[in-house]
Amino acid sequence: MIRSDPKVRAFHARLLATPCCAALVDHDRLAAALASPVGIVFVLRADGLELRPLVTSVHAAGKLVAVHLDLIDGVRPDRAGVRWLGHAGADAVISSHGQLMPAIRHEGMVAIHRLLLVRRGLLDAALAATSRSGADIVEVLPGVILPEVRALMPSLDVPLLAGGFIRNEAQARAALGAGAVGVTTSAENLWAVDLR
């Protein structure tokens, strides 16, 4: 179920319109991401203490920005770190720390919880953690194997994203076919592909 918050609705609508999201792993690719048709830029690597210019340029290009709290430099993945990202203008925050999802929502951002697929024996605990966290969206990693493991997962009541090792159109379409509403990828060749 999608939360009725306008920001969450807008984020979800953007995913439906442009299911391919740019995963930014270095600043050099920002220009390519901004010039591409993607609707959402996921910032995985950046100086978290100097985010505002980046966020401003993404917004100026008419795109939304999601920031990975656990991977950016300089910002600790805690409540104060979440507040900082809200202050920097992020539309969404991604984290593997489920306990931070309420704080992300409280700051008016979309909360994206990473679900890491390690092995089947750990899946139930990971699913329970995502269920408890109250995330708006769950990002499954590595997304490239979502089609192979989807049958092992119950249906979740929030939208799914797939990220990780999605490098070609067939893999992206397979992830969408397995139930993801969008894919995040650093493969620039996919940013221009219309996956709807």
């Binding site: 995985l44 590595p142 990780g164 090792f165």
Partner: peptide, 8 residues
């Protein structure tokens, strides 16, 4: 080693 994405 964990292969969640290329960077990781």
């Amino acid at each position: 080693v964990f292969a969640f994405d290329s960077t990781g």
